[in-house]
Design a protein around this nucleic acid. Structure first.
Lengths: 225, 225
DNA sequence: GAAACAATCTAACATTCGTTAGAATGTTTG
DNA sequence: CAAACATTCTAACGAATGTTAGATTGTTTC
């Protein structure tokens, strides 16, 4: 009575999403796209792969409807096809962190001190930033900052930090964030600033994690459809 | 400064979860396991595949830490390795439904009338069931009912329905549910009962969807660790 | 319209994966 | 301890996938 051929087709469709998530390179591209839309060229450079390979992976992601494209002049910009995709990525990554001991090990190896931010931690950080008790810096490239950033954060790309030390308070707490727990930009910023004597720490949240926790995000340049 | 080999290993780990979700058969097995733990034999029969193939797929799921096993006599029982796995499955499926037009088509083809249950719908159903205004029947096999079921639901496996018609009220609304939107058991139950003149409809929720929406679940037989 | 450029398409290869079938392991029953 | 049974392991095949390189399409600039 049950068990029609339809049922199999349904699982097949869902598996298309799974297949799209089955490659490390594609996951890295998704992780990059959580920060905002980017051209193929930019993505390939950030993921350190050949443009043609990036194009092939992006094609796979597009066929699974996880990303959309937009043409602007010579460039084609890719973006996640919805906020739920960023939530999907975080859910899958979270599951991996919770269930794969090896991933926990790799994470521990990478992020010497966790500096994780949980629940009330975010609220209190937001409050302190509002009052000016801490300075929140976004160490990603300016473009990503403009696509969306934490409230009260100021843009301070890693590449420019050494030249802009005078803009930072030597006597107040500084909190740096970047693309998320896997991103090393804020790690580098912390290393650089602590060496100069600043009171700085890192949070694991990127804009995606922050937003997924229900916290507000600000946008500098309006561009999203 | 950034871009260590560690980063790649992290995405690789997450991709293990993606790979596990990349096969229709494995997704079907996960979907079955959301209902509660089952032996390899049972799973293979339910998914209509060879036991040896089921074993191979379950091995892959186990290696991705999505399922755990338990031995009881001759049988080995598989279960999801946490509630978050059931949420993961629902998130991925939800994404597929939202983003894959073809999946929406297949769903429409299969579930002639959606009978979806959204937000307040669940609360009001629970209230009506509590007052006795509707009779909620769980048409899955008894074992799955015992592992967890909707509050106020009574077990009425599809196979037994025709012999137990006298237990059902001819003058009140009946709501049938089974394993979730992809499961056809409740569809069959509705067809069977409407033909007998009962006022019956189906809801797409299974126990997993119900619980994921924050609704309470009851357990008959205590067994979970 | 030609040159420069971004991105895609195509073909080819090595690798991995899904599936099948036969052999092996571990458990219970007599 | 032998027989029956559930499950896993191993080997093998074809299909699908990731990667690389070369050819092609579409856009801008001059």
């Amino acid at each position: 009575m049950s068990s029609s051929p339809l049922k199999g087709r349904l699982y097949e469709q869902v598996a298309r999403i799974g297949k799209a998530l089955a490659s490390p390179k594609r996951l890295e591209l998704i992780d990059l796209l959580v920060q905002g839309e980017k051209s193929v060229e930019t993505l390939a450079a950030a993921a350190d792969i050949d443009i043609r390979l990036a194009s092939a992976h992006l094609r796979a992601l597009r066929e699974a409807r996880l990303v959309d494209t937009r043409r602007e002049g010579k460039h084609i910009y890719y973006r996640l096809s919805g906020d739920d995709i960023s939530r999907l990525w975080i859910t899958v990554r979270r599951t991996a962190e919770d269930h794969l001991a090896e991933l926990r090990l790799a994470l521990a190896e990478m992020v010497t001190k966790p500096h994780e931010l949980h629940a009330e931690g975010r609220e209190s950080l937001l409050e302190k930033a509002r009052k000016g008790e801490v300075v929140v810096i976004d160490v990603r490239p300016v473009g990503e900052f403009q696509c969306g950033h934490l409230p009260f954060a100021r843009s301070m790309p890693l590449a420019e930090i050494s030249d802009r030390l005078s803009e930072l308070p030597p006597d107040r707490d500084i909190v740096a964030y970047c693309r998320g727990p896997f991103c090393l930009l804020s790690e580098d910023a912390v290393a650089l600033l602590s060496a100069r004597g600043f009171r700085v720490r890192r949070i694991a949240d990127g804009v995606g994690e922050w937003a997924a926790a229900g916290m507000p995000v600000e946008r500098t340049k309006e561009e999203a459809a």
